[in-house]
């Protein structure tokens, strides 16, 4: 099995620099997301007894090779999937048994950034960012407009330039930033990132990482970042979970992961 490799010495150097956000994880803070012994199979087992706890304000990065089940965890938290066994709790409420309408209510508290942004390609950038506000609030259009502008400015986009554009007219990095603006439009308590840096050039990766840290710092949201981009993941993580063949084989800080002696972790970090 080929592991995704990253340049370990450079990662070590980056970890020594005081650029990472200070860990917001605090055992006294309430648990926001909990996966308890979660099993899920499709044609083959995808998750095999996954346990994961995320506390308020914490940023947990789930690392793993392609096909290891990382994105499946996000879909379980959004209740786009239901596990074969185990509990998935959001704000202490088990969402596995919820009906469709109740699940929609839970989702309104969660923003999700998709791997390829998943913007509605028939809607303009403005309409995309305004979408969750139009759908889930009674705000009039005069109130939505300034929120959309503010969110686009937050993700370092020029509202006057991009608002009337269609997603197809934007670069990959810009699309991703619009996706983040849409995810935070309705002030969610939780943000889930699915491969936020996939397919981006290094400068765009830096911009997305900076943006993720800005969200942590300024909004204090609880975040789960699923990625196989080790360097980007370490730069935003309070805590790292490493998924291998449907099981979490490591949990700790980025520093602890870099210092680990486990052969698989060494191979994974390169």
């Amino acid at each position: 099995m080929s592991a995704v490799r990253g340049p370990l010495p450079e990662i070590r150097r980056e970890l020594e620099e005081p650029v990472r956000p200070s860990p917001q994880a605090d055992a006294s803070k309430p648990v926001v997301i909990e996966l308890d012994d979660v099993w899920l199979s499709f044609d083959r087992p995808v998750l095999r007894g996954v346990n994961l706890v995320v506390r308020e304000g914490e940023t947990v990065v789930v690392l793993g090779e392609s096909g290891s089940g990382k994105s499946t965890i996000l879909k379980l938290i959004m209740r786009l999937l239901v596990p074969d066994r185990g509990r998935v709790c959001v704000f202490g409420r088990d969402i596995v048994g919820l009906d469709f309408e109740a699940a929609l209510e839970v989702r309104k508290h969660i923003g999700m950034v998709f791997q390829y942004a998943a913007l509605f390609d028939s809607l303009t950038v403005y309409e995309n960012v305004a979408y969750p506000l139009r759908e889930n609030t009674d705000l009039p259009e005069e109130a939505i407009y300034p929120v959309v502008r503010e969110r686009l400015e937050f993700v370092n986009l020029d509202p006057d330039r991009v608002m009337s554009q269609l997603p197809g007219e934007l670069s990959g990095g810009m699309r991703k930033r619009v996706g983040i603006a849409r995810a935070i439009a309705a002030n969610p308590d939780i943000i889930l990132y699915d491969e936020p840096t996939a397919g981006l050039d290094p400068l765009a990766v830096d911009a997305i990482v900076d943006l993720t840290r800005k969200l942590q710092r300024e909004l204090g949201v609880t975040s789960i970042v699923v990625t196989h981009d080790i360097r980007a993941g370490f730069r935003v993580a309070d805590r790292v979970d490493l998924l291998r063949d449907g099981r979490i084989v490591f949990e700790g800080t980025p520093e602890q992961m870099v210092a680990a002696d486990d052969p698989y972790i060494r191979a994974f970090l390169g």
Binding site: K75, M78, L80, L104, E105, R107, K108, I110, G111, M112, F114, Q115, Y116, A118, L119, F120, D121, Y131, P132, E135, N136, R182, A186
Partner: peptide, 11 residues
């Protein structure tokens, strides 16, 4: 392209 998933995630 996950647009339907995105729609569901936004309630």
């Amino acid at each position: 392209t996950e647009q339907i998933d995105a729609m569901e995630t936004m309630g």
